[in-house]
């Protein structure tokens, strides 16, 4: 970001009010709040309208509810599923597998990514395997994982791990490699030791990259979770989706999809909020 204003004493942006900008600030500050309320309202109206239109179209056209159930039926199926206590067991099984797999991938991806970015020899040793795995659709490994680890939680956790670890590893590595050379030079001029270069410059610079990788990892991990449960499992949300669809209980299938949507949107939203907290200075990294 380059300086565009000639005013020396005024911050380009930020919460520090100077005497000159106070008037602008008073006029400008309440707006974001209004905006977010208005945006939430718009979203609610938008989604509500979408469901109403869906309901109306299905009723008008007389499509079979097995093919496309109206939202009212879907919500009823969801309420029934939750009421019978059926959902929680499956959901907690899925969530536990996801949490373990994602935690492992976060640790391994960050550590390996940092090492590969920092050391050329580590990169040349691990590189071929990482890129081979990166290029392969990891879902294709599921049959092998089932063969080796059975139909239990292990094969699912492993697939979640393999899927989520890649974006975390790659973005961490990229972060280390793209460290601003000017910052490295400054740190060296001011007497930073080799260790200090890593702890005071490379690591903080890479943090927003790691956060981006974690956010992408959440998405990949959720895909792996559902797919692993759809094939060769007797539990989990993915299993419930596959079973309800096979039983032509389409309303339940939709209800489960709704649960998944809420879950993943919530997780990604949480990651984005965390990203903003951890690295408020880097907006360009956030994609």
């Amino acid at each position: 970001m380059r300086d565009r204003g000639a005013n020396l004493m005024m911050p380009a942006r930020g919460p520090v009010p100077s005497s000159g900008s106070r008037q602008e600030a008073a006029a400008g500050w309440p707006r974001p709040r209004n905006d977010s309320v208005r945006r939430a309202l718009l979203t609610a109206v938008n989604i509500g309208g979408f469901f109403l239109l869906w309901e109306w179209l299905v009723r008008q056209s007389g499509v079979s509810p097995i093919f496309l159930p109206p939202p009212s039926t879907i919500f009823k199926a969801a309420a029934e599923m939750i009421g019978r206590g059926q959902l929680w067991g499956h959901l907690s099984y899925s969530a536990a597998n996801f949490a373990i797999g994602f935690a492992l991938s976060a640790v391994a991806g960050t550590v390996l990514g940092l090492l590969m970015g920092a050391s050329r020899s580590v990169e040349s040793i691990l590189g071929p395997y990482v890129w081979a795995l990166y290029a392969t659709p990891r879902i294709a490994l599921l049959p092998l994982l089932i063969l080796w680890f059975g139909f239990g939680a292990e094969s699912k956790i492993l697939l979640i791990f393999l899927s989520a670890v890649m974006p975390i590893l790659i973005t961490s590595m990229d972060g280390v490699k793209t460290v601003d050379q000017a910052l490295l030079r400054a740190a060296r001029v001011f007497g930073a030791t080799r260790t200090q270069i890593y702890t005071r410059v490379v690591l903080p610079f890479t943090l927003p990259f790691i956060m981006t990788g974690l956010r992408q990892g959440v998405g990949r991990g959720l895909i792996a979770m559902v797919v692993a449960e759809m094939f060769g499992s007797g539990r989990g949300v993915g299993f419930m989706i596959a079973r309800s669809a096979a039983q032509l209980d389409t309303a339940t299938t939709f209800a489960l999809l709704l649960v998944l949507v809420v879950l993943s949107v919530g997780l990604v939203y949480m990651m984005t909020a965390l990203e903003r907290r951890v690295a408020p200075w880097r907006e360009d990294v956030r994609v």
């Binding site: 380059r2 300086d3 911050p11 380009a12 919460p15 520090v16």
Partner: peptide, 19 residues
């Protein structure tokens, strides 16, 4: 350097001259 009051501002909140 005349930056009292800006101790807690981050570089992206400062103008080029202030930086």
């Amino acid at each position: 350097v005349g930056l009292r009051g800006f101790e807690r501002s981050f570089p992206h909140e400062l103008s080029g001259g202030m930086r």
